[in-house]
Design a protein around this nucleic acid. Sequence first.
DNA 1: CGCAGCCTATATGTCTGATTTAATAATCTC
DNA 2: GAGATTATTAAATCAGACATATAGGCTGCG
Lengths: 237, 237
Amino acid sequence: MSTRQEAPALRIHGTIARDLGIAIIAGTYAPGELLPGDIASAGQLKVSRTAYREAVRILAAKGLVESRPKAGTRVSPMSRWHLLDPDVIAWSLQGQPGEDWIRDLFELRLTVEPAAAELAARRRDAGDLVEMKAALDAMAQHGLAVPEGQAADQRFHHVLMRATRNAHLISLSSSIEAAVAWTTIFKQRNRALPRDPMPDHVALFDAVAAGKPAAARKAMTVLVRGALSDTELSFLP
Amino acid sequence: MSTRQEAPALRIHGTIARDLGIAIIAGTYAPGELLPGDIASAGQLKVSRTAYREAVRILAAKGLVESRPKAGTRVSPMSRWHLLDPDVIAWSLQGQPGEDWIRDLFELRLTVEPAAAELAARRRDAGDLVEMKAALDAMAQHGLAVPEGQAADQRFHHVLMRATRNAHLISLSSSIEAAVAWTTIFKQRNRALPRDPMPDHVALFDAVAAGKPAAARKAMTVLVRGALSDTELSFLP
DNA sequence: CGCAGCCTATATGTCTGATTTAATAATCTC
DNA sequence: GAGATTATTAAATCAGACATATAGGCTGCG
């Protein structure tokens, strides 16, 4: 509290939803707890009720809170949170996510991404392959230590997901991609990239390009497991 | 338009977000198209600007629209939509989803749920098994034609997902469960449940109870494929 | 002729404060 | 004491004003 926001000027509403979301996810407000009435909260945050209420709408849309007349606005049980919402993921990472969180995320990746790679190997067209190859070359050229290389990495995975032709899968992986981008920052902080991820990526691309679903699945599994081991969480099966 | 909402009285804001969301997903507003200025829209919908703007906030939180000062509020490209958001799923189903949508959903189920069943077989505890057994018995007793039986079915799957101990997986499956509940209605409309789903459920339960991950995975695959064939979409690999 | 930088119009963003509604809690009746 | 009634409260809605950021046009220079 009492942090003066001198510069931000406008754009308050996105900031306040973010801050509140982070606080809720971090556990500052326990599930079931009810937030101070909007009149009080707004005053405390130095914003109008309108801005505060719109922020609460955003949080409600993501399942973090639930507000009903008279009852007040209370934090929803964690089981109702939309954990795979891109913003919720970002907010989770903002507050140093627990090991459980990261473990669960990688478990999901190990479930979804190999299956997606398999589908991509079946359905990719020539255009997809061109784009993937370009991204792969960019990765090789810049390396994953610099932003350009990281962007190419994301592009590679995004095109791969698009090649599945499955809108739900694309949507899901987009959410995860955002999370991965963040966890990459984590990785960089801990050690200095001990492993060269390029061979795994090349193997994956080759399998997809060759149209070999089983090989693509296996290559992606290897790739994700490698990413996992870079995160210092090696207690998965 | 011009549907008089005589009864609802309050609760306008949820209604307006829902209606707008359905319209957007149904394609009434094409991606890229920009909605009438909020002053105009609010007038047209007979609500105050505040209510309308809060509704737009909800849609923005789900990635359906994006609004910036001066530029106006425009429908986001479909690739940014949070397709797995429970509300977005519900809205999609409201407007008769395309075959693609259902196919993609089942493809996702075939990816996620067998993996989840495998995890559940590894991590379930005695309490989980008790709950699952109870739900199973209720299903057998009532049958899937009545609401009680359908509720038991959902309970069964929910407990199974909870037994994975993976928060992300639980969140994801919760979204899908909601969709499944709706598609079940579709099923009922078309044919009169030609297949008895109980044996599949029993096999799945037995595998999970016995702690056999591979068997659980296979049983779940069979179960989901069965559900798929009940939906008259048999063009999956 | 083309482009950089300023300018202005406009739609969103924000604020204030009053009013209405619905759900809870306290009260009252039988 | 059980059930119906009223009071209370916080959210929901409304209305109208002001602030601000930015798209798109304008100006002037190279």
